[in-house]
Design a protein around this nucleic acid. Structure first.
Lengths: 146, 146
DNA sequence: TTCCTTGCAAACGATTTGCATTGGA
DNA sequence: TCCAATGCAAATCGTTTGCAAGGAA
């Protein structure tokens, strides 16, 4: 099992919270880090091979989410998808295919991001809402389904 | 049962597809039209009183969604929430409370909307994605939970 | 040893479906 | 009459949990 710089970041975060970075959790983080968008538990289960039972997978995901290493995304068909948290993977937005359910990460320019933030701040102030995060969800058809 | 202009729009749309606008479906549309954001089946079930069984409610929602009268929103805790489609209710975005799960509709200015679209077009072109809809999902704490 | 993690199976909660009944055109 | 809509109960599906076994500190 190779230790990447990602592993080191995660390890540090987890140990700071007294949480172990076990083999199963490493496998989940590795699988997510290779993905080009958030993945469902079922997709991860496939990726990881049949050795990892779904219940353990869900438990790993729960721990990683509570530790802030993994973030949740709720999408097509009510499925929960999981991705590496933005403080590690970087801030991004989502392209969601309404046909096949694929969710792909995309980044927008720093300028556009700044403009987006000002829109968010304005709208939030008006609504007495305290924003902590945001995501532009763009629905449509992906390359394969178009 | 009063017939509103909303009812007329829905009626026209449904009959154009050979779909009946029944009492149950009217009730669902009415309940959604009074909401300030997307509502889950359970919330609608409460709103509608105990007379409407959940299975019928889900069936109404399915029909209305397939007819394009109602749109789906996937949010907190993997719950599916339902709202009046944008061609009727108008284009808007969402404030999502990470604490209590409340989802509130918000609009942004026409100028900001135009800027948003140009960002979306640019990102979509780069990714060979055909955008059909978008929503800015702003997460944070609502007025009550802050 | 002691506590955390894992596996398996059973339990859950949201949503869907089969089937018999009701209702509208 | 005839097909669509409804109600109820049972089935599904994603996800969670109880409990006993395995592993690390």
């Amino acid at each position: 099992m190779t230790t990447t710089s990602l592993d080191r970041q995660v390890e540090t975060r987890l140990s700071g919270q007294g949480v172990r970075y076990t083999k199963g959790r490493r496998a989940v983080v590795a699988a997510l880090s290779h993905a080009d968008g958030p993945k469902s538990a079922a997709e991860l289960h496939d990726d990881l091979g049949d050795g990892v039972p779904l219940s353990s997978l869900y438990r790993s995901l729960t721990v990683l989410e509570e530790s802030g290493v993994v973030a949740l995304h709720h999408g097509t068909k009510g499925l929960t998808r999981y991705e590496i948290a933005e403080w590690i993977a970087g801030h991004h937005h989502h392209l969601v295919c309404t046909e096949c359910g694929l969710v792909e990460d995309v980044e927008i320019s720093a300028d556009d991001e700044i403009r987006l933030r000002s829109v968010i701040d304005q709208v939030s102030t008006t609504a007495s809402f305290s924003p902590s995060d945001h995501s532009l969800e763009i629905e449509g058809r992906c390359m394969r389904c178009a």
